[in-house]
Design a binder for these strands. Sequence first.
DNA 1: TAGACATATAGGAATGTTCCTATATAATGC
DNA 2: GCATTATATAGGAACATTCCTATATGTCTA
Lengths: 100, 100
Amino acid sequence: MSIAPITRALASEKRLLILSWLKDPRAHFPPQLDGDLVEDGVCVVLIAEKLGVSQPTATAHLQRLAEVGLLRAKRVKQWTFYKRDETAIARIRAAVAEAL
Amino acid sequence: MSIAPITRALASEKRLLILSWLKDPRAHFPPQLDGDLVEDGVCVVLIAEKLGVSQPTATAHLQRLAEVGLLRAKRVKQWTFYKRDETAIARIRAAVAEAL
DNA sequence: TAGACATATAGGAATGTTCCTATATAATGC
DNA sequence: GCATTATATAGGAACATTCCTATATGTCTA
């Protein structure tokens, strides 16, 4: 099991930004009406706006991060909220450290 | 200072393989006539053969890893030996862990 | 200096990534 | 049901990456 899929997911300025913003969503995003920034995650349009890309592009980045387990998506009403999966990230951090 | 150049350098199965082989060169490469595998590093053709790519392709991968500081090149006679820069790698490991 | 060997560079084909617009799907509220 | 809002998917343009072959450069040895 290689970590190449993970390093490929991390090989993007914008995806690294998303990951860092989601460490402290309240510091980087306005409050949401439905769904708590920390509890539920951040909705796609907020991330798209802050990233300065279209909604489909943001969706693609978020899906890519979720595919390798860094983020988890949660559908609430018509929104999809993304948040970090800290347990998985801890594992990934260790795997990357070992690969280096 | 983003770590994106580093994650891009790591976003390749073959470059990750090179990095791991160079952790213990004697376990992965035959002895060299000129230059010690551990002291001096491993020459380009040995890496190209083991990787199953042409010499120019191996050179490109090695240069890419050296560009971000993971490897160091040492020219000895007509050979170029590549070895890990463990000090830089420790720094990079910490930077990646922090970015995640 | 000529020939041999190791590495580097140049150029180009195939593939992958990034991003957009247009449109489909899903869920809400009237 | 119909309009609205949020997200997902499709398709394609621009660019980056990967890999090759051909060739240039550098270095050793006879």
